[in-house]
């Protein structure tokens, strides 16, 4: 069953957050299914399989965990492009962010985010949040049929 799992894409610029997220997902046995990109531009490269990601295995990730605030292209812009593209719009996008700003939340849902999770300060809460999100989208949720990009 695990062999069938598609990949989780984590777009996050903070190395610490990447490490903590991986640690949380690691408890779920999902470690080897995580791809990490460090900003919005890289995330789009990954999704469109261009430049550094031209050679990756085709297919959309099972879920995209998207940080809001990133260098170069920010999370909202990535979200806007994904939801505006026929081939990518079915990818479940979970906004995973520190921001409690109402504006960000409303904007994200307007652009078509599937979920909005505020990273809790407390690690225990953070772990369970990431685990639930990762587990739900990567394991429980029935993915849409493959319509790969590129």
């Amino acid at each position: 069953m695990i062999a069938d799992l598609r990949r989780i894409l984590l777009a996050e610029d903070s190395a610490n957050d990447v490490e903590l997220t991986i640690a949380a997902l690691g408890d779920h046995g999902l470690v080897n299914h995580i791809d990490v990109v460090r900003d919005g531009a890289e995330a789009l490269d990954y999704l469109y399989r261009r430049d550094a990601y031209a050679g990756r295995t085709p297919g959309n990730p099972a879920v995209l965990l998207l940080d809001l605030k990133m260098p170069r292209v920010d999370g909202l812009e990535v979200l806007r492009q994904i939801k505006g593209d026929q081939r990518l719009r079915t990818i479940p996008v979970v906004m995973l962010t520190s921001s409690r700003e109402e504006g960000d939340l409303i904007r994200s849902y307007e652009l078509g985010a599937n979920a909005y999770v505020v990273k809790p300060v407390e690690f225990g809460d953070f772990m369970s949040a990431v685990r639930q999100v990762g587990g739900f989208w990567a394991v429980v949720n029935e993915a849409p049929p493959r319509v790969a990009a590129g």
Binding site: S14, N16, D17, L20, A23, S98, K119, P120, V121, E122, F123, F126
Partner: peptide, 8 residues
């Protein structure tokens, strides 16, 4: 974020 990292 740094608070989360400290706790994490």
């Amino acid at each position: 974020a740094p608070l989360r990292h400290i706790d994490g």
